[in-house]
Amino acid sequence: MRPFTYARPDTLADAVALLAERGAEARVLAGGTDLIIRLRDGSVRPEVVVDVKRVPELAPGIRARDGGMLVIGATTTMTEIAAHPLIRRDVAGLAEAAAVVGSVQIRNRATLAGNLCNASPAADTAPSLLVHGAVVVAHGLAGERRIGLDDFFVRSGLTTLAPGELVVAIEIPASGHGRIASAHQRRTRRRGHDLASVTLACGLDATGLTRIAYGSVGPRPILRLDTTGVLAAAASTDEARTPIFEAIFADATPSVRSMRAGAEYRLAMLRVLGRRALATAQARLAAGE
């Protein structure tokens, strides 16, 4: 690994100042499960690595605010998210997604903010967060701003974070229409931990609005809504749902060069996983889970 300077700021102000000052020379270290691989293979070559795990504002933790909003600290690990009772109850799709990110060892280190900031199209937590309308809370020299997650991703490795901006938390707002029942599905090459060749979540609420988000089939995760109520309606036939799914998945553009799965397979699996996630979400909504 190429040498670099290690910085471990104790305050948010110091962290932001350092990131702003060093710009592209700096990389943020949270869980390190992606960064350290890339430091070793030389695909990133920072001058300074900024470990943000001791910045109080980014501390791990999942807190419920008044009105039902959940706030997840930036350095909260996948293990904590997958096990947290509120997440499991109210954001089931996220709990499921966090539980399949890598192995136990990876989940003990990998953070939610890291998973999002890498902006991997295959990030498993992104679809569930998208269907729950998650908001990224970022802090920069200009202060704090909130970015809807759908406005956060640009393409693989690139987000709309400004230079020097740091994610401090992820908020999962309470839905205006009661709770969203969600479910996550993915495809991998084996049952043991693997990168997703398709990752998808479905969220339903009592109004019949269906949100489907999916990744690993294009440069960034995609969120689509069904406002017709057809997907959500228990009485809908497969035939009725098909054109809606087709519209929802119309923007999937899987690479034909990927070695993890062929484009045709990924597109077909989107449809399979979409139906499966919908069925699970419907069952959860009905059960009041």
Partner: peptide, 24 residues
């Protein structure tokens, strides 16, 4: 972080020590 041959416990949690900087 795939094979786990370097697994150790840090503060009671299992991690792949190949993906942890010593300074951390």
């Amino acid at each position: 972080g795939e094979c786990g041959a370097c697994t150790i416990l840090v503060n009671g949690r299992s991690v792949d020590s190949c993906l942890v900087l010593a300074v951390e």
